[in-house]
Amino acid sequence: MTPSNSGPTPSFLWDLDGTLLDTYPAIDGALQDALAALGRPTELTALVPLTRVTLGHAIGTLAARLGLEEDALWQAHGQAEARRSGQFAPPMPYACEVMTEVRARGALNLVVTHRDREGAIVRLQAAGLWPLVDDLISVSDGYARKPDPAMFLAAMDRHALKPAGCLAVGDRELDIRAAHDAGIPAALLVTPGANLAVEAEYMLPDLKALLGVLNTDLPA
């Protein structure tokens, strides 16, 4: 691919779950199993708008809506998730291609995630993406969770980057808010059925669209 943008390629600050890795089928499936185990079978279509905010939001909302104890739902979810242990999520379509292109253009692939460092690395290795990651910033480093911008600010500081030289890519409202609070333009990977009240500089139907973004000038 021949670059046609007039400026340098931005470094990408990637979210992990739901952006680089297709984790939502497992998240939704474990929650659906937990609800069924508690006698509250629920259609997946009712879970999608909730889990795309956060899992905690989904569990809190569903517990209140269905008359369940929140702690009981968390416990049932943990048990359902344990039964799925060892089933690592595949990479999202075109994640490898976009990361490879970013690297080929001399920019960085930085992962900014709520997952603990060890768990994130294991999952990236299983998906075949770890060799394309230049650095990983996680809550294991002591930073606050998104939408706090601390992890984005730390990533820029660590690699001497300016906000205008970065692009944050995520699939949830908190990803975009954290990026914007750090002054970074953002691309939102839109999940069908998830109604998010946030606007990003780029609204992506899939990660393939980022190959087109790489050939445009980023917003100032």
Results as ranks from 00 to 15, higher is better:
residue 212 G to C: 04
residue 139 V to W: 01
residue 118 E to R: 13
residue 118 E to H: 14
residue 114 H to S: 13
residue 130 W to D: 13
residue 214 L to A: 08
residue 164 A to I: 07
residue 66 L to S: 06
residue 22 D to E: 14
residue 91 P to C: 12
residue 129 L to N: 06
residue 28 D to V: 15
residue 190 V to I: 14
residue 186 A to E: 00
residue 180 H to F: 00
residue 206 D to L: 03
residue 17 D to G: 03
residue 75 Q to N: 12
residue 186 A to N: 00
residue 140 S to E: 02
residue 177 R to I: 11
residue 115 R to V: 06
residue 213 V to T: 06
residue 72 A to E: 14
residue 29 G to Y: 05
residue 107 A to R: 10
residue 94 Y to T: 05
residue 114 H to F: 03
residue 180 H to M: 01
residue 131 P to K: 09
residue 119 G to C: 10
residue 31 L to G: 07
residue 156 M to A: 05
residue 106 G to F: 11
residue 129 L to A: 08
residue 217 D to A: 15
residue 18 G to W: 05
residue 144 A to G: 09
residue 200 A to Q: 04
residue 7 G to C: 09
residue 88 F to K: 11
residue 91 P to M: 14
residue 42 T to P: 04
residue 72 A to G: 08
residue 11 S to M: 09
residue 114 H to V: 03
residue 101 E to S: 10
residue 154 A to R: 15
residue 214 L to Y: 05
residue 3 P to Q: 11
residue 163 P to W: 04
residue 164 A to H: 12
residue 89 A to I: 10
residue 43 E to W: 05
residue 180 H to A: 03
residue 99 M to P: 02
residue 174 L to I: 14
residue 79 Q to K: 12
residue 190 V to H: 12
residue 204 L to W: 02
residue 3 P to N: 10
residue 183 G to S: 02
residue 174 L to T: 15
residue 79 Q to S: 09
residue 100 T to S: 14
residue 113 T to A: 06
residue 12 F to T: 08
residue 165 G to M: 06
residue 196 L to K: 04
residue 201 E to N: 07
residue 206 D to Y: 02
residue 204 L to H: 01
residue 55 L to P: 04
residue 78 G to K: 15
residue 167 L to G: 00
residue 30 A to D: 10
residue 163 P to N: 06
residue 172 R to C: 03
residue 140 S to L: 02
residue 51 T to H: 08
residue 157 D to A: 15
residue 102 V to R: 04
residue 148 D to N: 13
residue 118 E to C: 09
residue 158 R to H: 05
